[in-house]
Amino acid sequence: MYRLAEDELLEIYRLMTLIRRFEDKVAEMYTRGKITGFCHLYAGEEAIAVGALHGLYDKDYVVSTYREHGHCLAKGASPRVVMAELFGKSTGISKGRGGSMHLFDPVLRFMGGYAIVGGGLPIATGLALSIAYRGDPEVVCCFFGDGALPQGAFHESLNMASLWKLPVIFVCENNFYGMGTLVQNAICQEELYRFADPYKIPGIRVDGMDVIEVYAAVSEAAARAREGKGPSLIEAITYRFRGHSMSDPAEYRSKREERLWQERDPIKRFRTLLTHERRIAPSVLDKIDQEETAVVDDAVKFADESPEPPLSELTKNVYVEE
């Protein structure tokens, strides 16, 4: 952590705080009926998106899942356009056509949320192939959950990416549950990072509640990928503070288990680190908290006031050549 300057640490704190406030507000707006459809929140997992993307450059690509608000914000998306997308508005990041599960921004190289479990891994592999084909220096960071590991797409993609030494970082967010099914009831090898071994790539398990640990692991994997040495698998242990989606009260988890993980809250933990070890004044962090609350309130106002996409555009963009 001491390699990071104070302004970097504050930026990390700001982004994690933004994501938490954003997700809490999304839950509120969902309850009020402003947001509908499936909606999977990232609260509790912020250290992974923020740590991982702090270890990458703006020109690197991200491929994500249906639990991707955090990844998209960490990649630099404006909270306004992400919130507007959840509201289904034409100003949304996917013009109101995607919704919570299908955010996309080609300028930010946020290459989409994919809502078929494991569906993003082949896409990330192909993007990495296009980078290697051109001889460009970028890497692809591909996020997915523990639920994707039993999918064929995971194994096919790791094999192909390793075989061709493609610049992709596979980041598995292990939050212990695929919907309501415990990892050990779904996967014979619950130490998920060990799936790297058969594909002859580095596999590492990190504390996904520790933003600096995630940052360090992704930085190392990115350096390796840029040197043409191929992909890595990073398993980040984490916990979602809410259910699988807004319609899931998570009754399959005990209150005690939830409380134990709340005590490991990645933002509180990082805050303690900043105030105790780096001697950053709590007032500096309080100010960031207030600013991000205002940013999220502004995002809601923007989304609420934005126009609906016109019905006349229903069939637009099915094809490039209409």
Binding site: Y61, M111, I123, G126, L127, M160
Partner: peptide, 11 residues
């Protein structure tokens, strides 16, 4: 899937 990704990547 890799074909889709490569196409989105400009190939």
């Amino acid at each position: 899937g890799a074909g889709v990704g490569a196409a989105m990547g400009g190939l």
